Simulated assay, not measured.
Amino acid sequence: MNIESFQAYCLTKKGVTEELPFGPETIAYKVAGKVFALTTLDRTPFSINLKCDPEKATQLREEHDCVLPGYHMNKKHWNTVIIDGSVKDAVLREWIDHSYDLVVQSLPGKVREQLV
């Protein structure tokens, strides 16, 4: 996965916006105004921050060297994933889906209904 395919995949999700709330180098992907994914344009190697269930976050960090506690994020709920080719794109898309789904589940019922 590269930054272009990451961006394109995030934007396929219903209700997602792409914003630059932290300056011109950091792109945030939001659903109903809540962040579910971030990336920094000027960082090498390419990495993404994804929201994650706390137990799953710990498990992924133990299983994958490329998964670290969320950089500049709540370490309990966020992972930083270094995109180094060690994890298949399909798995990365599953992790993006998980992040999106966690945020959608936290939204008020009326907002959630609009996204289904």
Rank of each mutant, 00 (worst) to 15 (best):
K14A: 11
W78H: 11
C52H: 05
K13W: 03
D65Y: 01
E18S: 13
A37W: 00
C66E: 15
G109M: 10
L92P: 03
L11G: 03
P69L: 12
M1W: 03
S5Q: 14
A32D: 13
M73C: 08
S106C: 00
C52I: 05
E113W: 00
A28G: 08
K14L: 10
A28L: 06
W78Y: 07
D65L: 06
V81K: 00
D42P: 00
D65G: 10
N49A: 14
D89V: 05
I3D: 12
E18P: 01
A57H: 05
A37S: 06
K34A: 11
I48Y: 09
F6L: 13
S5A: 10
T26P: 01
L41W: 03
R112M: 13
E55V: 01
G33A: 08
D53G: 02
V103R: 02
Y100P: 01
P69E: 15
V111E: 15
L107I: 01
V91R: 11
G23R: 05
F22L: 09
L115R: 02
Q105I: 02
P108R: 07
T26Y: 06
G15Q: 09
P21V: 11
K30G: 13
H64C: 07
N2K: 07
K75L: 11
V103G: 02
W95Q: 12
K13A: 01
E94M: 05
V91A: 15
N79Y: 05
S86I: 02
V87R: 03
V31Q: 11
V91T: 13
T58V: 09
K56H: 12
T12F: 02
H77M: 08
H77E: 13
G70I: 06
E19A: 07
I96R: 07
L115H: 03
G15E: 13
P21Q: 14
V116D: 14
K75I: 10
Y71T: 10
L41H: 06
N2L: 04
T40L: 04
R43L: 13
E4C: 01
K110T: 12
D101H: 04
F22N: 07
D42I: 04
I48R: 06
K75E: 15
P21D: 15
G33I: 06
P21E: 15
F22C: 05
C10T: 05
P54F: 11
V67A: 12
D53W: 02
E63Y: 00
P24M: 08
V91H: 06
R93H: 14
G15F: 03
V91K: 13
Y100G: 08
V35K: 01
C10L: 04
L102W: 08
L50T: 09
D53N: 10
I96S: 09
P69C: 14
E4L: 04
T44G: 02
V111M: 09
Y9R: 02
S86M: 03
S86K: 07
Y29G: 10
G109D: 14
L11I: 04
W95I: 07
S47E: 14
L11M: 14
I48Q: 13
Q7Y: 07
S106M: 01
M1T: 08
I83C: 00
K110S: 13
P69V: 12
E4W: 02
N79L: 07
L107P: 00
H64A: 08
K14W: 01
D101A: 10
H64V: 03
C66S: 14
Y71G: 12
R93Q: 15
R61C: 09
L20R: 10
D42R: 05
D89Q: 11
I82E: 01
K88Q: 15
I27H: 07
H64N: 15
T58S: 12
